[in-house]
Computed example of a mutant assay.
Amino acid sequence: MKEKAEELFHKAWTKGWDTKFGGLYFALSSIEDLIDSDKNYWVMAEAISAASLLAVKTKNNQYWKAYDLLFNYCWKYLIDHQHGGWYQLLNNENKMYSDEKSPVPKTDYHPVAACYQTIRVLT
């Protein structure tokens, strides 16, 4: 499973990381073409979790570099530092469509779970 997880992460990173504006694109097709260039909060949160888990399990520091890029991206664009929470969706240039955040009952489920998984794997 570890090898498959690394393969999937690498594929998602090389095909999905926006080298111009940062962040991971929302969706690739089954043939790995970009089909949605928006940036969705839960995609970033799940990638943060995956990066930390792979960093610990593989002892490969490249995953910590990905973790740092992802977390810094979220800190800059997705986190509402005034009122809390993560904005749901940004366009490909990291502009908000609205100030809408995680809907009830999912309120920040993905970001909290990603942080929890990272803390858990480090202990």
Rank of each mutant, 00 (worst) to 15 (best):
M1I: 02
K2E: 12
E3S: 07
E3L: 10
E6N: 02
E7D: 05
L8Y: 14
F9L: 03
F9H: 02
H10C: 03
H10M: 03
A12H: 00
A12G: 05
A12R: 03
K15I: 00
G16I: 05
G16Y: 09
W17V: 15
D18R: 06
T19F: 04
K20H: 01
L24N: 01
Y25C: 06
Y25I: 13
Y25H: 09
F26N: 14
A27K: 14
A27G: 14
E32M: 10
D33M: 01
L34E: 09
I35M: 04
I35Y: 07
D36W: 03
D36I: 01
D38L: 03
K39N: 08
V43E: 05
E46F: 15
A47C: 13
I48R: 08
I48E: 12
A51P: 10
A51V: 10
V56E: 14
V56R: 09
K57R: 08
T58C: 04
Q62F: 04
Y63A: 01
W64S: 06
Y67E: 07
L69W: 06
F71E: 09
N72S: 04
Y73A: 09
C74L: 02
W75R: 15
I79E: 03
D80G: 10
D80F: 11
Q82E: 15
H83V: 00
G85S: 05
L89P: 06
N91L: 04
E93C: 03
M96R: 15
K101I: 07
V104I: 05
V104C: 00
V104P: 01
V104R: 04
P105R: 05
V112W: 02
A113T: 05
A114P: 12
C115F: 15
Q117R: 13
Q117W: 08
T118W: 15
V121H: 01
L122K: 12
